[in-house]
Design a protein around this nucleic acid. Structure first.
Lengths: 209, 209
DNA sequence: GCCCGATGTTGACCGCATGAACATTCCGCG
DNA sequence: CGCGGAATGTTCATGCGGTCAACATCGGGC
């Protein structure tokens, strides 16, 4: 991803980055459960325990990968929205943007199943020593994008409170069902149908009735 | 669950069932990843490899647990719908039933997070020897219930095709976000808000606009 | 030029999945 | 009733993954 290392022999020079790259590859290939410390080290050509100089253990490695995956997802959504043509009518434009973001989301999930699953994998979480009650829980840009798009759409008409979460739910659930759920093995055609229907539901659901 | 065994000493008498119960307990406590063959065997008081006489390995055990979890989910949904008062207007009744089913779904997920996750966990899947191309993929009753409710609702007005999947997506995604996703740690109050908003979206999304 | 701290390496321990070989029990058949 | 095989458990062994402690090596600052 970010950091082509100039590897030496004993001291690698950029092990942390190299491990992250390897781990991201692993996640891409087989999802979060495939992110295995020993394998990442192996790929980088380093002993398993070397990773402990840079990560607190598998958990932290996985958490790092998750961050990357989330960033990539958001990027994909933004690219999808950017490709969308504008519209004179602001309401129409807002609707289109929201739809484009959602399509980008689902598309990313379908195209990079492993990475997508990694993006939302529940990672063990660090043991907190009974202080620092709430880890800031960094924002998830994918969600922010959806929320903002919904707000923009809402400004062009009545908006239901908490619609952001509802929209996200639909898009997220759809992705998971398509990926590993019972909607897996749908033809591309039928998959698109489902996506569009869900999108219509989301858009129409934003408006108060 | 089903099978209180009268354990002997060497020959257990009902090991398979006992293991399933233990495994379901494990899933209830910590989700699918906690369903560990050795631990299940330990709880039943039997050697780890004994399980292989009854299951093809961890995968099959987990698949069995998944079946139980799905059944329980559907039961919870039906109970929730059964408690719902009827209505004279068939359209209203259909709407209420759908909403009740969805609430039951989310409720089950929130109350039994581990079991719920187990219900939709992706299990490795048996290696097929290149024949038997499509394993029948047994229906998921929870989905059937939703689909039927949507159809009933659809008969009282225009219905969007593929709305079933859309509705399921929303409900499923919502559950996951509430469980392990970023909507975790929401107060019960705000959680209910989100649930109701999503429900409204689902119901309004069924109708053609 | 030397010494310390950062960074890797070895070796070891534990838990888990799984397979092979061996033990015990149950049950139907003679 | 008694025997023998099929079921069902057990022990032993292999391999993988996570993680820790002790040791080795390199890279710089003094």
């Amino acid at each position: 991803m970010a950091g082509i290392s100039g590897g030496k022999n004993y001291h690698h020079g950029d092990l942390r980055n190299a491990l992250i790259c390897a781990a991201v590859d692993l996640a891409t290939e087989g999802g979060p459960e495939r992110v295995v410390l020993r394998e990442a080290a192996r790929r980088v050509g380093v002993s398993p325990t070397a990773a402990y100089r840079h990560f607190d253990g598998r958990g932290e490695l996985l958490r790092t990968v998750r961050g990357h995956a989330r960033a990539r997802l958001a990027d994909a959504m933004e690219r999808a929205a950017a490709r969308e043509p504008g519209a004179d009518d602001p309401a129409l434009a807002a609707e289109r943007r929201l739809a484009a973001l959602c399509r980008g989301y689902v598309r990313f999930a379908v195209e990079h199943p492993g990475l997508y699953r990694a993006a939302f994998s529940a990672v063990p979480a660090v043991d907190r020593p009974a202080c620092a009650p709430a880890p800031p829980e960094p924002e998830i840009r994918a969600f922010t994008l959806l929320r903002e798009a919904l707000e923009a759409l809402g400004r062009t008409g009545g908006r239901r409170p908490a619609a952001g979460a509802a929209a996200w739910s639909a898009v997220h659930g759809l992705s998971l069902l398509l990926l590993e759920g019972p909607l897996r093995r749908l033809s591309a055609q039928r998959r698109d149908d489902v996506v569009e229907t869900t999108l219509a539901m989301v858009v129409s659901g934003v408006r108060v009735p």
